[in-house]
Amino acid sequence: MSSRDFRPAVLDLGDALLRPWGRTLDLPGGTVPALVAAAADPEIARWNPLRATGPAEAEAYLDRCVTGWAKGSAAAFAITDAVDGSLHGNVALRWTDQAEGVALIGYWLLPTARGRGLATRATDSVTTWGVETAGLRRIELWHAVGNTPSCRVAERSGYPYEGTLRASHRYDGDTYADEHLHARLATDPAPSATVRP
């Protein structure tokens, strides 16, 4: 493994833990059913690439996460409650240019976890972890132009808006949508110094 590989870790946010996705992750009621339920949420289904509409797809997702961790190419964290272990969401990094230190970050939250700043704190925590442990230099964050909550998370996490990527991604499998590009550099000030919660 190189110094730029992602290595499994548990990150503590106080009220939540960021734990590596995988077959050994034990969520209340089962990890596979939790993923299937998350994929059924209309907002997650609309804006995120989680394709786990049944047990086989959820297991394939977990296998991809395990492979990403094993190769050091991706770091997918389940956001779980610090007390009861229930699933709140997901935040993940993956290399887009490992040699140059450039990665992409994404996230989603279940409805019960929204509106508490959890996505912002998880995104900031994983960003800081990636910079400190894997030498991230630039982390990009893309979201559909219409996904206003994601835009707010990006800005509050210290990812300023850099531009619009036209006809960039298929969210519904048919039509290409424009996306906003946000990015954070390892040398940028901490979000608490630049934005208000």
Rank of each mutant, 00 (worst) to 15 (best):
L104H: 14
N90G: 01
L136Y: 09
G89L: 03
D124A: 14
A74H: 01
V131D: 02
C151G: 15
A134C: 12
S73F: 00
E140L: 07
G146A: 11
L87G: 01
W129E: 03
I105S: 05
A74N: 00
D84K: 10
G146C: 02
S73Q: 06
G135F: 10
H143G: 02
T112A: 15
G89A: 04
A122Y: 09
E140T: 09
R137Y: 08
V126T: 09
H88Q: 08
R94D: 12
V145Q: 02
V102E: 13
G85C: 02
W95I: 05
E132R: 15
A113C: 11
L93K: 06
V91Y: 04
V126F: 07
T123K: 03
R137V: 09
L110E: 10
L109F: 10
A75M: 01
G85F: 03
D124E: 13
T148L: 11
A99V: 13
A122S: 14
H88T: 01
T128G: 08
L110V: 11
G117Y: 02
A103D: 07
I79G: 01
G130N: 09
G101V: 08
S150Y: 12
A122R: 07
R116E: 13
A119K: 09
A99R: 15
A92P: 00
L93H: 14
T148R: 13
G89E: 04
T128F: 01
W95V: 05
A103C: 11
L87M: 11
G72A: 00
V126E: 07
R114W: 11
G101D: 10
I139Y: 05
V126G: 04
D97F: 06
R116Q: 14
V102R: 14
C151Q: 12
H143D: 01
L110I: 07
L136I: 13
T112S: 14
T127Y: 11
L118F: 06
R116G: 04
H143R: 14
A92W: 05
S125P: 00
V83G: 00
D81A: 05
T148Q: 12
V131I: 15
D97A: 14
R138T: 12
A103M: 10
